[in-house]
Amino acid sequence: MLPIFCINKILINDNNMNNYVISIASGKGGTGKTTVAVNFALSLNNVQFLDCDVEEPNANLFLNAAISKTIDALISVPKIDENLCNYCGKCQEVCQYKSLAIIPSSNNSKGIVLTFPHLCHSCGACVYICPKTAIEEVDKKIGEIEIGNRGDILFASGKLSIGEIMSPYLIKQVKKNINKSRNVIIDAPPGTSCPVIETVKHTDFCVLVTEPTPFGLNDLILAVDVLKKLKIPFGVVINRSDIWNNMINMYCNEENIPILMEIPFDMGIARLYSNGIPFVEKMPHYKQEFIRMFEQIKRILE
């Protein structure tokens, strides 16, 4: 048995090891989600950064991580062996996504099998139901995952191929790279639908970035509803906080939502952004702000 003080020490160490997975989201696009995510990551130690905005991944334009490997992101889709298939149509019946069409054979012609792999959700029901075991699952590439680092920051990012629609599946695969020995910062896609849900799900905390315009408030309220439904704790960063009145502050106060940070409009920040330069690099005092924000998040979670 370990002496008491040793156990204490282990506990303290454990506490230090207590890292968080924090997603950065926003109902409305273009409110500064990626900016906040990147600058936040650059202000902390022991960080892993994931870009889950797989339709438009652009965090690395700012982070400039060196990519050490690129992995194909695959999903499995059905492939039908026409030598075994008897065109019974059971697979078509069971598929909820219209990904398979079977035209039965008639007296003078052989049946036809059509597959629409881009509609497939990889549920596997067709494979299970086929009485002739004519269906096998084959890999289909829907995008790529890039892995690398920028100095001490570990980096992973997903990129959906043009013409593909299964972003949530790619996001899932990007998230498999989560390294719990780090504080993980995840850049989410804009909006409030499936790709966002897939990204923020099972994260410890979500930072919602918004701006004080009627659009910003409208979309913030939608995002808040989603996070409440998913039971994820969250707080708000108000970007360009001085472009209008304090409507966001009022809303947050009423709803008891913590405001984590306010970033006033600054032409300098806008210009740096346009050139792909994270503003903490030129305005180091913001690092302190982000560290303070991290402390605040930790307090909320404790």
């Binding site: 990626t34 339709e55 438009e56 652009n58 334009l61 700012f62 043009i162 013409g163 952004y273 346009s274 050139n275 792909g276």
Partner: peptide
């Protein structure tokens, strides 16, 4: 005219060509 604006527009152009 931001690096991300350009990057994202490129992807949309590809899609539109598709």
């Amino acid at each position: 005219p931001t690096v991300s604006g350009i990057h994202d527009m490129q992807r949309v152009i590809e899609l539109i060509k598709h």
